[in-house]
């Protein structure tokens, strides 16, 4: 069965870049969300065994999503994908339950490394 994964970013191009960086052999069913509220809806609908989450978004940002997931038992592996390279941002999302932080622009090498590290692929 394909693994349901969710790509969350307000930029259509950023979502495309990320989807293109996923390992081609990875058997996944990809859903997309443009903001945190859509992300949480998709998560509740069981579409996010793995979530790639941008931080800066309208309506509800990535921190807001992490906070909500934490209240709801965090039944998803969240990989934060952000251009914010301040160490504080990384520490903060990891402390909020994200398993990893990937810096934008993403590359297939970066994504594969993280997925392998956590035994996702």
């Amino acid at each position: 069965m394909s693994l349901p994964i969710l790509v969350v970013d307000d930029s259509a191009m950023a979502r495309k870049m990320l989807i293109k960086s996923l390992p081609p052999e990875w058997d996944v069913e990809i859903s997309q969300a443009e903001n945190g509220v859509q992300a949480i809806e998709a998560y509740r609908a069981g579409k996010a065994a793995v979530m790639f989450l941008d931080l800066t978004m309208p309506v509800l940002d990535g921190y807001g999503v992490l906070e909500t997931l934490r209240k709801e038992d965090l039944n998803s592996m969240v990989i934060v994908v952000s251009a914010d390279i301040q160490p504080v941002a990384q520490e903060r999302v990891l402390s909020m339950g994200a398993i990893a932080f990937v810096k934008k622009p993403v590359s297939s090498e970066l994504i594969s490394t993280v997925l392998k590290q956590y035994g996702v692929i």
Binding site: S11, A12, A14, S82, A83, I85, Q86, V88, K103, P105
Partner: peptide, 28 residues
């Protein structure tokens, strides 16, 4: 959309530089 994403990525660097300059976390 593409220009905005490119600029956002570029601004990640600016945020980090400003954070160093101001010694505060910068959301940008």
């Amino acid at each position: 959309d593409a220009l905005q994403e490119l600029t956002n990525i570029a601004m990640g660097q600016a945020g980090a530089s400003l954070a160093t300059l101001l010694d505060e976390f910068v959301d940008l």
